[in-house]
Write a protein that binds this DNA or RNA. Structure first.
Lengths: 246, 246
DNA sequence: TCTCCGATTTGAACGTGTTCAACTTTCGGA
DNA sequence: TCCGAAAGTTGAACACGTTCAAATCGGAGA
């Protein structure tokens, strides 16, 4: 997974240090930790969030309940391990897409579709996941400090996408586009989670329609007539999400 | 509260029947039910969601725990009562705004600000609330069947706002604008919940900036140059949220 | 080899949301 | 007035997430 190479934008050194330290750590503690994570991920995937009890996870990992709490402060914390697993897979799938030389829109659509594909087997679970992620204090929240690594990892995908595109667009929009696309992806996930059509085909249809529209909007941003629209939109974005903020 | 008079757009007759039936019902059961609701609302407001136990609610209402479950399937169900209470207050505050003769933008901003005002004392609680509402199956979910009444009540506000505005705009957009504004309000709530600035002043700043921008966009929709932007956007909206759906 | 001390592990215990079989109250009709 | 069914009510019991004092382990130093 070359994906890890994208973590190297100096962010939250503590968490990164911890992750790096863990990767090399083969001590007893780390083995236990990973056994718990593996069991949790498997059982979450098989039976969903609520049906998977901490006792079941501990038993499956061959440890006691209390031991699981030595490594994870709460059941919710195990959810972010599940999330990280899927994000790693998404990143791996996205790599060849970014390397490919197709258009901005095609690649954006491919990235979004791969995201849906990765999550597809866990549609039911994702419903609970989003409920946990939506509460502000939660470490799994996409806006939380704890997930800033995951967030920058995700935005880095769109950053690379935008940087490698030659589509003409407003330069200020270009600077902000990665964040906007990340936001759009977030919205798409929320939509997908609530999409009850078989196979979530409606979400896929929305992607097919939305991406060309976005491409059109981005292209239009460089035209004089759309200047006020673009500028005012970016001003609003600056108020909503200041560039200085994490 | 003249607000109730806006419920009369034939929606989900079952739920409405139940609500109407309850309003007139003074039987013992209904009294118990309301005692539980009152206790739950008060305790939620005082101590938040998790700190308020079902045992505390039941004790406060002077009933047994099991009795509370005779009227409400789960603790979460009591949350929607809390939500309804606040929505009723919002509706009452919005009434004079809609009656007033100010501009579209001014009234929209006032509506949104009143919404924030109503929720302001419960910012911490709202964090949990949104976590519950975000999970797809939940009856509190803004997209759920159970909350279709509340949803139509909310959109009816924006419907009246749009109907009574003389701002020139694309007719198709006008037809869809109420739903779009409802969606925008939803996004604003999510933003507000995550806003940790003191008094959520950033959210208020966003409203101040976003509303004029929306007003500008709406006005622009009738111009020829923006036709493709408008039309394609509405096509996308039709895919995302078909008019035929509830 | 022995002795510590921190890291790890345990399982019983607590408080919670929720369920349920049994009990009590209400009230329309004989 | 009485009966029976429906509505309402109870509290003990269950399963769960979480906590914690105590037990165990493992390796660095004497």
């Amino acid at each position: 997974m070359g994906s890890v190479t994208h973590t190297d934008n100096g962010s939250s050194p503590a968490a990164e240090q911890a992750a790096r330290g863990r990767a090399a750590d083969t001590s007893r503690g780390e083995q236990t930790r990973q056994a718990i994570v593996a069991s949790a991920i498997r059982l979450f995937g098989e039976a969903g969030y609520e049906k998977t009890t901490m006792r079941a996870i501990a038993a499956d990992a061959g440890v006691s309940v209390g031991n699981a709490y030595y490594y994870f402060p709460a059941k919710e914390a195990l959810v972010s391990e599940f999330y990280l697993e899927l994000q790693r897979e998404h990143l791996a799938r996205v790599e060849p897409i970014l390397a490919g030389g197709t258009s901005f829109g095609d690649r954006l659509a491919a990235i979004l579709r791969e995201g849906i594909e990765v999550w597809a087997p866990h549609h039911a679970f994702a419903g609970r996941f989003i409920g946990i992620a939506a509460v502000p204090g939660s470490p799994v929240s996409p806006f939380s400090e704890e997930s800033s690594d995951a967030r920058e990892l995700a935005t880095s995908i769109f950053h690379r996408l935008v940087d490698s595109t030659e589509t003409k667009m407003d330069p200020q929009l270009r600077a902000r586009l990665p964040q906007l696309l990340w936001l759009a992806q977030l919205g798409l996930v929320v939509y997908w989670v609530h999409d009850t059509t078989p196979g979530q085909r409606r979400t896929r249809a929305v992607v097919d329609l939305a991406v060309p529209y976005l491409e059109y909007l981005v292209g239009a941003s460089r035209m004089k007539i759309f200047k006020p629209l673009t500028t005012r939109g970016l001003t609003l974005l600056e108020a909503v999400w200041p560039r200085t903020a994490a």
